[in-house]
């Protein structure tokens, strides 16, 4: 049961209030008709499945009804940041290696 910070409500909420909407930052091609079948197929069907940093689209369905993005580590499930639509992530595979993510948080 994840604990997700809604950037619009400004606080942490339980996962039940949200719906996951898949990978973030997949803009609809501006000229769909100019896409080849392969390009269009990539847009609709193909998604990343990384071990590590993943940018995701969520919606605060039971709360403010707003969509937002979350950067989640797919091994630790740690959510490293959430940010509004239109904003860029500050935590990316480039800025954070596997190591930092796995040692975040308090350990015994």
């Amino acid at each position: 049961m994840l604990h997700i910070f809604c950037p619009h409500c400004g606080e942490l909420r339980s996962e039940e209030e949200f719906h996951a909407k898949g990978q973030a930052h997949i803009p609809r091609p501006l000229e769909p008709n100019a896409c080849t079948d392969e390009e269009w197929g990539d847009y609709i069907f193909f998604r990343d499945n990384p071990r590590g940093i993943h940018h995701e689209l969520w919606v605060h369905a039971a709360g403010c009804r707003k969509y937002f993005n979350a950067t989640r580590h797919t091994v630790s499930y740690e959510i490293l940041e959430t940010y509004r639509i239109g904003e860029k992530p500050t935590v990316t595979e480039a800025t954070v290696g596997e190591k930092k993510a796995t040692t975040a948080g308090v350990t015994a």
């Binding site: 630790s76 796995t102 040692t103 975040a104 948080g105 308090v106 350990t107 015994a108």
Partner: peptide
């Protein structure tokens, strides 16, 4: 003994 965890816990 418990290994490193991602959780905010203290053993």
């Amino acid at each position: 003994i418990p290994g490193e965890g991602f959780q905010k816990r203290h053993c």
